[in-house]
Amino acid sequence: MTGFLFEITFWLTIPFWSLMIFAPKLPLTARIMSSPLIAVPPLVVYTLLVAAHLPQLWVTMSSPDLDTLREFLATAWGASAVWAQVIAWDLLIGAWMYRESRRLGLHPLLMGPLLVLTIVLSPFGFGLFLAIRAFCDRSDRATSVVTGQ
């Protein structure tokens, strides 16, 4: 069961990532990505994984140390739970990046690769987006630098 939950976690988010990357200008995409409920599917997986292990999870997270965390992550359910949590947070970060890109008028051909980078290596994708956002959101810079408009 744990292996199945691990495998399905990412696939539950694919529809949301696909909308942001392949249909960013659709009104439906904007409406869906404005809801924090998009994180519910991986969080349901997280809940299923940790429900039977709440006391152990509490001990691990309430006073973390490296050895305890290493033991936790060495279990199939622990690694799968952390994976589900990471997938949920990455999706929320990606949705925020999507909304900000729409506000700034960034071109989808710029945002598509940034969102893919965020899926794979979220700290790098997010960091790069923050740099682009800071550059484009300055009052003395027009978004035309990135969008060509």
Rank of each mutant, 00 (worst) to 15 (best):
F4E: 08
F6A: 12
F6N: 05
T13S: 10
T13L: 02
T13D: 02
S18E: 02
P24D: 01
T29N: 02
I32S: 02
I32Q: 04
M33N: 02
S35E: 04
P36T: 00
P41A: 00
V45W: 00
V45S: 07
Y46K: 11
Y46P: 01
T47W: 06
A51V: 08
A52E: 11
L54M: 14
P55W: 14
Q56I: 08
M61F: 15
M61P: 00
P64F: 07
D65R: 02
D67I: 11
E71K: 14
F72M: 09
L73F: 15
T75G: 09
G78Q: 12
A79P: 05
A79I: 10
A81N: 06
V82N: 14
W83M: 05
D90R: 14
D90I: 03
L91D: 07
L91S: 11
R99D: 07
R99E: 10
E100I: 03
E100N: 01
S101V: 03
R102T: 13
G105P: 01
P108N: 12
P108L: 12
L110N: 08
V116M: 06
L117S: 03
L128P: 05
A131Q: 05
R133Q: 10
C136E: 13
A142F: 08
S144D: 10
V146E: 12
G148Y: 05
